Amino acid sequence: MKILVTGAAGFIGSHLCEKLLQNPNHEVIGLDALVYKSPTPIHVREYNLRYLLAHDRFTFINQDLLQVPLSEILPGVDIIYHLAGMPGVRSSWGEDFKTYVTNNIEATQRLLEGCRKYPVSKFVYASTSSVYGEKTNQVNEDAKTEPLSPYGVTKLTGEQLCKVYATTDELPLVILRFFTVYGPRQRPDMAFHRFIQHIRQNKPIPINGDGLQTRDFTYVGDCVEAIAATAYAANIIGETINIGGKERASVLDCIAILEDLFGKKVDMQLLGKASGEPRHTWADIQKAQTLLGYQPRTDLRTGLQAEILDLSQTPYL
């Protein structure tokens, strides 16, 4: 089976490629533009690829999805995992929004056009819990989508584009909505990465809001198990599926775990509430459990311990 992963050098993308290559029947093509405006520096994404580049069933294409000749990569591809895009809620405001439109909407549309000429058996679109906006209770896939940020708007637009092609061209679409993924290789702009680095450097942890906001934290290893399961899952075409984690907690709960893991109290710097972020997220994952056999296994303490270890062993930090 030939599989294309866009955004292959990213946090989730690199883990997914490694997971897919554990199956000897998989050949993986990784596409990544290594966009310089991304929250993840280029040298970090190059480091993410270090194991993949040595694998004989992995091919890396360092090109922009808006420029790469799709006629050279799509023929013979069975599954597309479309993870490429510009991430991050806080940086999606102002002039930078243009970058989000380019990478999250225009690039998606071009890939979808390519699938009209070179059909695939599954097109898996990586979306986000940000499309839901502010919700007070556990949210299932039928909940109203009300994004609070320009980033969320672009990801929801990507979903809608995919649905248009699914309707007009019978694109075999599956949408996955990820909830706060963390773990080794997490982006430097994300909270846990910043918290851990500040603790290591004896700096106060910057916290947006009061710290009582909660998230459904999804360990990256659990997340890629769910993504990879779509390759062979039956009866999922046309479905939108939440991918949440094993444990939901507040920011202050997470800091308490980090204090215990580091064996010391940490100082906190309370900042204003970040624009575009919901106060709470909580995934209903019943559909993922039923359709994908998904069962998140990694608790927050174990996952944070793995991220701390990874950061301590990363040579560029």
Rank of each mutant, 00 (worst) to 15 (best):
S91M: 11
Q201K: 15
M1C: 05
F97A: 10
E113S: 13
Q197E: 14
I61Q: 09
Q63W: 07
H82I: 10
L258I: 08
K265N: 13
P296M: 06
Q313S: 12
N235S: 13
T230Q: 04
Y294P: 00
K163I: 00
L261P: 02
L258Q: 04
A228S: 15
P87V: 11
Q160R: 14
L291P: 01
A143E: 13
V44G: 01
H193L: 01
T281N: 01
I3R: 04
A166M: 14
N23V: 05
S92C: 07
V68L: 11
A143Q: 07
V139Y: 00
I255F: 08
D169F: 15
R297K: 15
S149K: 03
I236M: 02
A274W: 01
A249L: 11
E247C: 03
T154G: 07
T180Y: 13
V120Q: 11
C17A: 14
N25H: 13
Q109K: 15
N104G: 08
T218Y: 08
H55K: 09
D64P: 07
G183Q: 08
L111Y: 08
S275I: 10
Q138Y: 04
I241D: 02
F178K: 00
G13I: 06
Y125P: 02
C162P: 03
T128R: 02
V251I: 15
A9R: 03
V266Q: 06
P278S: 07
L252S: 07
F11G: 03
